[in-house]
Structure formats: structure tokens, C-alpha cells
């Protein structure tokens, strides 16, 4: 019985230690809160404002790889890279989408300032990418022509 009680105590102490760790660990994993204002913005300017990126400076070190013409707007491959040192995050905006802000990627602990994904575009439009480094924003954009919109 005694042994059992000791085991129980150890488990209990361990569990409470974990519980104490829990919220901190979650905070460290650091997912910034979902940018509701930005993602629900219908105008590009609003989306930019939600990011704090209104005054972004054009830069050749922000690289956007996307097709010139995408036949299917439901699946547009896009690759974004920032060569600017200390890039902490990269955001993608498709100007003519009903909700222009597509995604925000944040980097830490050795992750390269790079992301690759596939997105939907409702119409031929400018795609702009915003890289945040040392609290400044840098931007680059390119046009992607869409043959069939991917809104549905």
C-alpha cells in the first residue's frame, strides 16, 4: 500500500509539474493569434494595415515564384522567399480575392524565410508578398493570370 501511495504521489507531482509547464509551452510554440481583422478584410489596404505593412518598401530580395498563367484558379502554386536578414514573417496577398489576405508565415529557431503552398485565386490579379524584418516591411509582387477562377 505504501509503495502504491508513493507511486501515486510521484505521478500526481509529475502531472502538476506538467500542468504548470503547459500554458508556458503553448505560449512558446508561439502561434500568434489568428489575424481576424486582416483575414476578414475585403480591401487590400485594410489587410495591409492589419499587418502594419502599409508603408512596405519594394525589394528585390523578396522573391515570389508563381506561374505567369494558372489554368485553374483553385490550385495556384506559390513559393515565397526573403533574402533579407532577420526576416521574421512573410505574408501573401492576392489583390482581387474576395478576402485578399491569403496567409502569414512566421519563422523562428533556424527556419528559413521560405514557404511553399498552393492557393485559390478568383481572378487574374496582382499577388503581393510582404516580408517583415527588424519591424520593417519589404514587398514584391507579380501578376498571375487565371483562366478559370477558383472561387467555388
Amino acid at each position: 500500500m505504501k509503495v502504491k501511495r508513493r507511486q501515486f504521489l510521484q505521478v500526481a507531482v509529475g502531472a502538476s509539474a506538467l500542468a504548470a509547464l503547459g500554458p508556458h509551452a503553448a505560449r512558446q510554440a508561439g502561434a500568434a493569434e489568428w489575424n481576424k481583422v486582416g483575414f476578414q478584410a475585403k480591401a487590400v489596404e485594410q489587410a495591409l494595415e492589419s499587418l502594419g505593412a502599409a508603408g512596405a518598401v519594394p525589394s528585390k530580395d523578396v522573391i515570389v515564384k508563381a506561374p505567369d498563367i494558372a489554368e485553374n484558379g483553385a490550385v495556384v502554386p506559390i513559393e515565397v522567399t526573403s533574402k533579407i536578414p532577420n526576416t521574421r514573417s512573410i505574408a501573401i496577398i492576392a489583390d482581387k480575392n474576395p478576402f485578399p489576405l491569403v496567409a502569414i508565415f512566421e519563422f523562428a529557431n533556424g527556419a528559413e524565410a521560405y514557404a511553399s503552398t498552393r492557393m485559390k485565386m478568383s481572378a487574374t490579379s496582382n499577388v503581393r508578398v510582404l516580408a517583415r524584418a527588424d519591424d520593417k516591411f519589404y514587398t514584391a509582387s507579380r501578376e498571375v493570370k487565371i483562366t478559370i477562377g477558383g472561387c467555388g
Binding site: 512558446q28 510554440a29 508561439g30 502561434a31 500568434a32 489568428w34 489575424n35 483575414f39 483553385a74 490550385v75 495556384v76 513559393e79 492576392a94 480575392n97 478576402f99 489576405l101 491569403v102 496567409a103 502569414i104 508565415f105 512566421e106 519563422f107 523562428a108 529557431n109 533556424g110 527556419a111 528559413e112 521560405y114 514557404a115 511553399s116 503552398t117 498552393r118 492557393m119 485559390k120 485565386m121 477558383g150
Partner: peptide, 19 residues
Amino acid sequence: AVMSAQWSQAISRNPFLGF
């Protein structure tokens, strides 16, 4: 933590992510 992403509904169905 190395990468965290916030997505909208504009990411394609059956999403692909590379980092």
C-alpha cells in the same frame, strides 16, 4: 517552434506546405 502559419480560406483544398 520553427514555423507557424495563419491561413485563410484561400489556401487550396488538401493543402500543401513546404518549409
